[in-house]
Design a protein around this nucleic acid. Structure first.
Lengths: 312, 312
DNA sequence: CCCCCGACTGCTCATGTGAGCACACACGCA
DNA sequence: TGCGTGTGTGCTCACATGAGCAGTCGGGGG
């Protein structure tokens, strides 16, 4: 066969652009119907024919399969990274909202963390996405945040749109003193929430990075030099307020003791823990979470997924 | 149906990325096999699914059809414009070479013009593209050109690779005086070539633009201020050395009289006249040629084709 | 109130398509 | 030369797919 590739191009053109049948193409190019078919398959495989699904809500199923296999996840959702690099979080948040909406069985109790990403997710939940879901906050809130109440409105929004109700955790994320934390934790109102939190059917959370403009610093729970110290100790980022290293281990036990919310072990042993994470900055923390078994479901963008798969 | 589009995306993903069968998809998404099929067709139509043939030799068959219909061409070849904008001519030249190679019936006598584009075409003709084709030069050569002999080597190359022979036109393109032109034209050697030229089965030529670094200026046939004058008179570009306006009419009859080669009417009444034209600069001259019936076959790039179709 | 119209659905049936198979041919090795 | 091997070809057959069609539903207009 002299120039197979060129012929494959002709076949692909006639098939896809002109939608001729393989038989017609065969007749037209003087080859058998089967040869045309084989050339076509070859063209698709070798990438001469590229089939692309261009839609904001489109997913990358091949990568999802790879992620599930590589990290033993129950499920994975990968959305294409948009060109402008800014809409990534929006895309991923939308994907998370879609995932929750079509999740079966519908979780009766959903544990949620807080942060910019999850706020975005909450706003994208469609009205009536489920009926009667109880949303529990799983770690301390952001009452000190400049935009007050984001943590609580986030949970409330998700709950309301499912005609359910939210159970909020009336506590800071990190306490200054261990004693205070113990005291708050044993308070009836707080303890009751935590009890519901560990019983959740599913957890939805994001992850933060060790960075001076983290929500923890912005909210005043940690100071910039605390961050530097954490980084020095090998912290990669945080999950439900708890700072971990590349292996998913707690970096600073003393600090962790003062952090109020469900434990990482609760997350690890959960039937369903959904991590929503987007953007280049979060590649490392995403890897840490995924490799240390903290999530069963990963929802992310294509670039992050590729980064995870590259060195698995 | 609440959100048809989103469903179409899911179907497309499962069909193209996961190659599930439409029946499987139906079962998976809780819709009938036929609905899945219809959604798929819809997704392709609405552009959610984009099927692209990425190959230097790929063509744009839909545009070719449109060009044939709009301008009454016998045939048209449109190649995708590459990203770098520089390889356009190479792509189009390759397409022209391919077109000639697979042209049936094989022309016994092929009339050729000269220029950068055609030189490119000649170099891309495959060895043994045909057998025994006589290649005739149809307009005056470029003996004064800095790279001497391009016009003749171009014709010779095409002829040699078809195991045929070239008939060269031993004359300048434009003569300084009408008397000289008449004299040369009536010379036996020149007249004989022109006789063969008008008998050609097919013509292959390109087009030039009215510009100070045109090959005509570079070769010394015209001066920069001649060009300005031509532009002032409404000249768009030249075809086989003859300058025309947007309607395909000769701009300067006196100049045209001094130009040696086949007439535009010969071209217009030819059974096959193949115009090879590439690049943004040549959109206008391409339009003039195509609308005034100077060619029966157009070989060009996608951007040029689009420009032609936009205001037809 | 009913009826008509259009959009949508799920079907039948003809056609298009891919997996698997037998053969043919060219090549390298004994 | 004879033999295996591997690639490429055209076939059969089962399955996937699209065109066309009748039934259904819902929303205006008489």
């Amino acid at each position: 066969m002299m120039d197979d590739e060129l012929l494959a191009v002709r076949v692909a053109e006639l098939y896809y652009d002109e939608n001729k049948t393989q038989d017609e193409i065969g007749g037209l190019l003087g080859i058998s119907r089967w040869k045309a078919g084989r050339l076509l398959a070859q063209a698709r495989e070798s990438g001469i024919v590229r089939i692309e699904i261009v839609h904001p809500r489109a997913r990358r199923l091949a990568m999802e399969r790879a992620l599930r296999d590589s990290f033993g996840l129950a499920d994975a959702v990968v959305v294409p990274t948009p060109e402008n690099e800014l809409g990534v979080q929006a895309r991923v948040a939308q994907a998370a909202a879609d995932f929750l909406t079509s999740l079966r069985p519908v979780p009766r109790v959903l544990g949620v963390s807080w942060g910019r990403t999850l706020t975005d997710v909450s706003e994208r939940m469609p009205e009536g996405w489920a009926t009667g879901v109880t949303v529990v906050q799983i770690n301390g809130g952001v009452s000190l945040n400049r935009r007050p109440g984001t943590a609580s409105t986030l949970a409330s929004t998700i709950a309301q749109r499912a005609n359910g109700h939210a159970i909020l955790l009336p506590s800071p994320a990190i306490l200054e003193r261990l004693a205070t934390k113990k005291a708050i934790e044993s308070d009836r109102t707080v303890a009751a929430v935590l009890e519901r939190a560990v019983e959740a059917n599913a957890y939805l959370y994001s992850a933060g990075v060790v960075d001076a403009n983290s929500a923890h610093v912005e909210s005043g729970y940690l100071r910039p030099d605390d961050m530097e110290e954490l980084a020095r100790r090998g912290a990669i980022g945080d999950v439900v307020g708890r700072y971990i290293d590349a292996n998913g281990n707690i970096v600073d036990p003393a600090l962790d003791e003062r952090t109020l919310g469900i434990s990482l072990d609760t997350l690890r042993s959960a039937a369903m823990a959904i991590l929503v994470v987007a953007g280049t900055a979060k590649h490392d923390i995403a890897r840490a979470v995924v490799t240390s078994g903290l999530c069963t479901v990963l929802i992310t963008d294509e670039a992050t997924a590729r980064a995870l798969l590259e060195d698995s």
